[in-house]
Design a protein around this nucleic acid. Structure first.
Length: 282
DNA sequence: ACTATTTCCTGGATGC
DNA sequence: TGCATCCAGGAAATAG
């Protein structure tokens, strides 16, 4: 399940492989489900666009497109119109973007194929269809929330002021912070000694400062290790990450806390599995 | 204006 | 072996 570190890893891998490539044609398999923009509109935006840049915003992968040469038919000669556009991909739970040769077997649940001028294809595969594709030709895509690696301690603490919701839910709320998912919410709460059910507004400024540091540390460490490979996550080169080996609470129900040997507990908060150490976290 | 709950979707694990 | 049931979870939609 790709969260900020996994999406960052994937975006960097894609940037290395497809930057500069031109999208020559597009095949879109479904009319709705993964699509947020109409299929025809998306194809129109993508085709003949040059991929100028690939980067991450929250859990979104954003392809910055440069739609260079456009024929102005009214004068019968080519006029260069510089137009910017974007292709925005959210991988959901099981979404994957693969760069491959055209003869490579088309995986089950392939929903979109972009044919590139380099002769390769960029394919979007998503069995569970929680992923989303959208395009922005005029209005620039604007993700909600603030990047957790860019926010300072004061603004971070202010996000939770007056919120009665459990801190775990607040961390998952993409309108506050963007990119934090279940794994890194649990891991950052462990690092800062806060139980996931604690009401956000009741947490001391000092603890929130620890949470700010803990969250930034865990995200940076995870990016350095290529993300966490749980279930079927792989990066743009099909390689697994290694941060799952560093998890201190996530997915460790019943296993002993690495700090105090107390068995890790699992509770459900807002429909999400939440893991914590009952001794280390208060 | 918030917060809580439900819904979407399929593969893999589990149980009988 | 086969079939039914449950579970994972991000974010949008819905309800309170």
């Amino acid at each position: 399940m790709p969260e900020l570190p996994e999406v960052e890893t994937i975006a960097r891998g894609l940037a290395r492989r497809v930057t500069g490539d031109v999208i020559e044609s597009v095949w879109i398999g479904r009319k709705k489900e993964p699509l947020k923009s109409p299929a025809a509109e998306m194809a129109l935006v993508l085709e003949q666009s040059r991929i100028a840049q690939v980067h991450r915003m929250g859990k979104h992968i954003v392809f910055e497109l440069d739609r260079g040469a456009v024929t102005n038919a009214s004068h019968g000669r080519k006029t260069r119109i510089s137009a910017k556009a974007q292709w925005i991909v959210h991988l959901g739970m099981t979404g994957r973007l693969q760069v491959c040769e055209p003869q490579a077997e088309i995986a089950k649940h392939t929903h979109a194929i972009l044919r590139l001028s380099s002769g390769r294809e960029l394919r979007f595969v998503d069995p569970r269809r929680f992923g989303r594709l959208s395009s922005a030709a005029t209005a620039e895509f604007h993700a909600t929330g603030i990047e957790p690696l860019e926010i300072d301690a004061e603004h971070f603490a202010a996000l939770f002021r007056g919120r009665k919701t459990p801190i775990k839910s607040a961390l998952l709320n993409q309108k506050l912070l963007r990119g934090v998912g279940n794994i890194y919410a649990d891991e950052s709460l462990f690092r800062s000694g806060i139980r996931p059910r604690r009401r956000a507004s009741t947490i001391s400024h000092e603890s929130l400062a620890k949470l700010h540091t803990g969250l930034q540390d865990v995200l940076k460490e995870a990016i350095a290790l290529g993300g966490s490979s749980v279930s079927d996550y792989v990066n743009a080169d099909g390689e697994e990450g290694f941060f799952q080996l560093e998890h201190r609470v996530y997915g460790r129900e019943g296993a002993l806390c690495r700090v105090c040997k107390t068995p890790i507990k699992r509770v459900v908060i807002a429909g999400r599995s939440s893991h914590y150490c009952p001794k280390c976290q208060k």
